[in-house]
Design a binder for these strands. Structure first.
Ligand code: FES
Ligand code: FES
Lengths: 143, 143
DNA sequence: TCTAAAATATGATTTAAATCATATTTAAGA
DNA sequence: TCTTAAATATGATTTAAATCATATTTTAGA
């Protein structure tokens, strides 16, 4: 439903939200370790996120990744959409085909509402808001 | 979150609920095709479900798989638990470690409630009830 | 303008899940 | 009791996701 890659990407973006800004960029090697994701792997994900404009980056010495103020207004679903694609999280729990309320599978009505709520919630808070929660001790960035 | 194997297993069990009973057993080859799952693959899953007592089977000529009346009182979460294991569906969306409301990750509060609701819903209806929905045209068994 | 430090692009390798294959065991019926 | 049809047990192969490796491009600063 949500890939490992998406989870890693979310962790990395939140880490950047907490520790970086326009004037304080962070290199992959300084991101990989604290979030406990292999460096080469998170590098690839960060590159993809940068290409898709969810995070910002500059090359060369003093370069690195960071979140611009617009980047911080993104939400978690934006990240999942870029890494996994829209359709994956919306696919039918049984068929992998089109999930459709007018032609539902036997467990559609058991699963559909909670999925809608989940997706809605993942769009509700900005990266910035989630980062503030961590700063305020209301949540933790796990390994 | 829910593996392909679990999805296949759920489809197979629902198929058995609709088409089989103590006097009318069904062979793997007659299950595989209608639910559109490779025969050797669904065979393995059915064997596991039978070993774990979620479905019934008899060997030899006139043998096959079927659901006893007790089997039909099981629910979808029972199947997921047997195929994927309990912990998988309950793991943290970010860390893969213990998901814990008193030490939550940044998206715990975005995801936890809907997951609880999903799991509760998947336990709510018996296989028999879900099969009746299909028989009554209220839902469809997809490919 | 050179050098070094960073991201980027691209592709190879590994691993776990999915899929396939087959020898063994059980039970019905002749 | 023999034969045959079924599930069962076990393991091999394939595939997609995860992970690793490296040559190229860009840019800051000497
Ligand atoms: S049709 Fe299966 S979850 Fe919607
Ligand atoms: S701690 Fe991450 S989902 Fe609960």
């Amino acid at each position: 439903m949500i890939s490992n890659s998406s989870k890693y990407a979310i962790k990395a973006v939140l880490f950047l939200a907490i520790h970086s800004n326009e004037e304080n960029k962070i290199m992959v090697k300084d991101i990989a370790e604290p979030i406990n994701v292999p460096q080469a792997y998170i590098a690839k994900l960060l590159q993809e996120l940068a290409k898709r404009k969810l995070i910002s980056s500059t090359r060369g010495p003093k370069g690195g990744f960071y979140l611009s103020s617009e980047d911080k207004e993104r939400n978690v679903m934006d990240i999942i959409s870029v890494i996994d694609g829209e359709k994956k999280i919306n696919s039918c729990l049984l068929s992998l085909e089109r999930c459709n309320s007018s032609n539902p599978c036997p467990i559609h009505h058991l699963a559909n509402q909670s999925r809608i709520v989940l997706i809605e919630n993942l769009k509700q808070n900005s990266i910035n808001e989630l980062a503030l929660d961590v700063k305020n001790g209301k949540s933790k960035l796990p390994l």
